[in-house]
Design a binder for these strands. Structure first.
Lengths: 140, 140
DNA sequence: CTAAACCTTCCAGCCAACTGTAGAGTCAAC
DNA sequence: GTTGACTCTACAGTTGGCTGGAAGGTTTAG
């Protein structure tokens, strides 16, 4: 008659869809705790499943494991870390904006190069490898 | 009286702004050739500078060193590899489009989460870590 | 002639988030 | 009691494009 259900790492893995190795990795980063049995096995409470699901969700929101570690630290200090999550979220949104901008600009550049070639094939200069690329000017 | 100017690796590095180690790395990937002197030194013709600049430009267009290797291989077979570059370029553009789309959708998701919290802070359920994240539903 | 500045090879490390393997111990079913 | 499924640790490997260091040989400026 087990009063508290104790899960082994494989159980947590099955219930969360996260590989056993990944769970051990999370533990090594301080994201997940376990109690050790006399046999050296890790044992988990059902809340661990919840915590792993939290990690997955936060990852799905683009947070790195380091970010998540900070969130969990705030949580473990007894706070509801939502304000902190808010600011991380805002950072991510800003970063995404910048990346999208850069990628869009970059895509436009590529299209210019593509079209330049499609319209009028630049004449190869002696020594050129591919005139299409040779005409690229490097700013950086 | 040197009839053909022979550059040492440091000269090529200075003229291109590419680190010596990177040049050796390019050579290890087959992107750059050199002749060896009796002292074991790599010697380069001035065209090598051109070739390194080509590599930099292609990189600036988002090509991987592997891509560039293929382009140079086509070139070394005696062809002007522009059609091949064209198709690579088209691939890159397509990939960028997809990435931009995904990132935009993802950013919209993040904004929804941010705004959901800003409007009405969800009540923490017992056992929750951060209710803002707990409400995330995982599709995958 | 000597010291600095080059050059060589080989190997390790970096970033993230794992996965895979070896070798050994443990547990559960039949 | 034995087979097979599970667990443990520890370390190597993955991806890409490098950088940095050790330990040695070469060249060049003064």
């Amino acid at each position: 008659m087990a009063i508290a259900v104790q899960l082994k790492i494989g159980d947590v893995a099955k219930q969360t869809g996260v590989a056993v190795g990944a769970l051990r990795y999370y533990e090594s980063l301080g994201l997940l705790n376990s109690k050790r049995g006399d046999n050296g096995y890790r044992y988990y409470s059902p809340e661990a499943v919840h915590q792993v699901q939290f990690i997955k969700k936060a990852q799905a929101l683009g947070f790195s494991l380091e970010d998540i570690g900070e969130v969990l630290t705030v949580h473990q200090r007894g706070n509801v870390p939502c304000e902190f999550v808010q600011s991380l979220l805002q950072d991510k949104i800003r970063q995404l904006e910048i990346q999208i901008q850069q990628m869009t600009a970059f895509k436009a550049d590529l299209e210019i190069y593509r079209d330049r070639w499609a319209e009028s094939q630049p004449r190869p200069q002696p020594g050129d490898i591919c005139p299409l690329i040779e005409t690229v000017s490097l700013t950086a």
